[in-house]
């Protein structure tokens, strides 16, 4: 399989006044086309920073990121970000309009966006909700709609920063199943950030473990799909990942993740 995303020697240092904070340091990895990669690690280890660098929201201090061999310099619809927050849909537009808006900005054409938008809503299980405004939806539905909007511009890479972190266990289960189907159907490549080990195991082909701004290791997921939780292989893999995390993150607590760090207002 071909190599879609290459991250080499990426370093990002935040400078707030005189203080310098390391976001991520010397990160190297590749993601193959069509793969589903998870990144896990304790809070503050640089997961969001890395994703934001790939998305082009942050300038890196060192290193190179390339997508299909082309260097990443600024945000673009070929890498689409989905955030944890439930406020990423535009509240002044209906769900369908949100999707049409995105397609129109990216394609600039005059195609039949309406029909396509409906198809994407159906894809994420929101058929019939096109005329709803975001305030009329539950958290899970909002995230589904965000996924539909992201897919509608046909990105090569989906960057998901704890997209289901604000959902209850119930809707999270449902959305996992839906999302896996969509992933398989569309063949989109996914980099998925989470602090939930089980979520990473359930969804991804490979797990990257981060700690204190560094990539500590990458673990291939041996489980076949669809994944079942009540088999010994699952439990032993879970144990393996947990142990690795405990080892690597020696001394640093595994905390609940805060939502994405406030990005700088700039345009």
């Amino acid at each position: 399989m071909s190599n879609l995303l290459t991250v080499s020697e990426i370093t990002k240092i935040y400078e707030s006044g005189k203080r310098k904070v390391v976001g991520v340091k010397n990160i190297n990895f590749c993601v193959n086309k069509g793969h589903f990669i998870s990144i896990i690690g304790p809070s503050g280890c640089g997961k969001s920073t890395l994703l934001r660098c790939i998305a082009g929201f942050e300038k890196t201090n060192n290193g190179k990121i390339s997508l299909n061999g082309r260097p990443v310099t600024k945000p673009g619809p070929d890498r689409f970000m989905i955030f944890q927050g439930l406020d990423q849909l535009f509240p002044w537009l209906t769900l369908k309009e949100n999707i049409v808006f995105a397609m129109r900005v990216v394609d600039k054409g005059r195609e039949n966006f309406n029909k396509k938008a409906e198809a994407y809503l159906e894809l994420v299980g929101l058929e019939g909700f096109g005329g709803f405004h975001p305030y009329q939806l539950s958290g899970g539905m909002k995230q589904r709609a965000s996924i539909a909007r992201a897919l509608s511009v046909r990105p090569k890479l989906l960057l998901m920063d704890e997209p289901f972190g604000s959902l209850d266990a119930f809707s999270r289960r449902a959305i996992h199943q839906m999302f896996l189907k969509v992933w398989q159907k569309t063949g989109v490549t996914v980099v998925f950030v989470t602090h939930d080990i089980e979520e990473a195991i359930d969804l991804s082909d490979k797990i990257l473990v981060f700690s204190q701004g560094k990539l500590k290791g990458s673990i291939e997921n041996p489980l076949s799909r669809p994944r079942e939780k009540d088999i010994p292989a699952y439990r032993s893999f879970l144990l393996k990942v947990s142990d690795f995390l405990d080892e690597e993150c020696d001394g640093c607590l595994r905390l609940e993740e805060p939502s994405t760090v406030g990005a700088k207002l700039a345009f």
Binding site: D87, A102, V153, T260, A263
Partner: peptide, 11 residues
């Protein structure tokens, strides 16, 4: 911020 970044993400 998320809405702004969605906008920037779209280009």
């Amino acid at each position: 911020v998320n809405q702004l970044e969605v906008g920037r993400n779209l280009g």
